[in-house]
Amino acid sequence: MTHLNRRKSGGSRGAEGEPVQIRRAKKEELTAVADLIVRTKRLNNEFDPLFAVVADAKPRAEKYIQATQGAGDRLLLVAVDASKVVGVLRAEIRERSFYEPHVEGFISDFYILPEYRRKALGNQMLEQASAELKKMGAQIIAADVPSQNEIANRFYVKRGFRALTSVFGKAP
């Protein structure tokens, strides 16, 4: 369990004034995490109708999240205020067969509840995830966001990331 990095404005503080903790998710938190995962998918839907969210997103998210537990190549970080899960970051180690560097830590899902935004929490979660992914062997960090999500795009660009690929889509 690691406490929040305090370098930036003393770290994020929760409702009770206690620091928000960032750590790997516990088993009993998976339902709450799944809720946040569904929120990220709904948010994506705001940017493109091809991200329309399925009706049974919740159970799917639970299954998706459960699969991260105990897997050495998956990372599931949560931000916790008191005992409430207020942020989630899911990532996995991927191999890049044809490119150097060879191993990437790929951030597939990242969500923070509105009240906890703009408090440097996102930055701290990203830094902590990067450090953990590096320990897991990652040589680069990558993240997947909808092209139209300017807020997310700016978030990464501001932190030294650059766009690597564009995924195009249309109905056949």
């Binding site: 929120r39 709904r42 705001e46 509840l113 509105p114 009240e115």
Partner: peptide, 12 residues
């Protein structure tokens, strides 16, 4: 802050 459509509000 946790209403289902909160992110939609953020954008719209």
């Amino acid at each position: 802050p946790e209403r289902e459509d909160i992110d939609q509000l953020m954008l719209k």
